[in-house]
Nucleic acid binder design. Structure first.
Lengths: 139, 139
DNA sequence: ACCAGTGACTTGCAAAATGCAAGCGACTTA
DNA sequence: TAAGTCGCTTGCATTTTGCAAGTCACTGGT
């Protein structure tokens, strides 16, 4: 974690071979999103119109602020997210997904689908912007 | 971790509401597979014909044996994986995905696709059983 | 000028998870 | 009897998490 705040728009390719455990794309992806929080941040940026630190912090799962801070840095560092001041005096920041970040949507949808089917969770429809609560299964 | 070894074929529904951080299917799924190792185990069970403890331990990413042990227990516990002795004298065990476990394949494929596109990793084709190394990008 | 308030973080510290090496128990084969 | 294999478990050091509190820059009200 010695990378500084300011250096953004790092390309994903700059982190390479040496960084990863193996050549497997799944293993590599997991190094970035293989934890309990990262994909939730991406979910909020992607679907729930949350773009400020506060917004992101206030989701149902209540991510601790230090973790949110770390994760955002990592995501910016890896080029999935861009951070920019959307106003000065006082300066306020907004986070947005880059193309690479948005490209995780299909994966997110699949994971959601699985959770809906097997863990009885809700489903969110990006088209309609509505989420459907799971109905109790009959058995 | 007080559940015993023997109790298998637990349904996923037995873990419920109280267990989860929120109703979100993604958050719920991440409680199960939201770490650096679990999906790799599923990858190996699903595509690479690895079914014994040793097989799973010997993948490229070198999961520590205690973690593998924990994860397998959790997966069995949640009904994604079944454990059975495939031979006695000496007793040897095999792990196999249940329906619920297999249902993660589309998610896995999407994650792999993303890693292939953005992290320069390899891609595995379940149809052909072959994996393709990523080619260096031109830029 | 003073003070409460807000947004975006950081810091300190306790608790939990991870990683590594070594060990163990049942069994087999030489 | 000795050595080897498989499927784990144990101990312990390191790392990551989680929670609460604090900081810093600024604003808006009195």
């Amino acid at each position: 974690m010695e990378r500084t705040w300011v250096d953004m728009s790092k390309s994903l390719v700059s982190h390479r071979e040496d960084t990863f455990r193996s050549r497997c794309s799944i293993a590599r992806s997991l190094e970035l999103v293989g934890d309990k929080w990262t994909l939730l941040i991406i979910r909020d940026l992607l679907w729930h119109g949350k773009h400020t630190f506060q917004d992101l912090q206030s989701s149902d799962e209540h991510i601790p602020s230090n973790i949110l801070s770390q994760r955002l840095k990592k995501l910016v560092d890896w080029g999935l997210v861009q951070r920019e001041a959307y106003q000065h005096r006082p300066v306020r920041y907004a986070y947005h997904l880059t193309k690479a970040g948005q490209a995780l949507e299909p994966a997110l949808l699949q994971i959601m689908g699985w959770g809906h089917a097997y863990l009885d969770g809700g489903r969110y429809d990006p088209k309609s912007g509505k989420s459907v609560s799971a109905k109790r299964r009959s058995s």
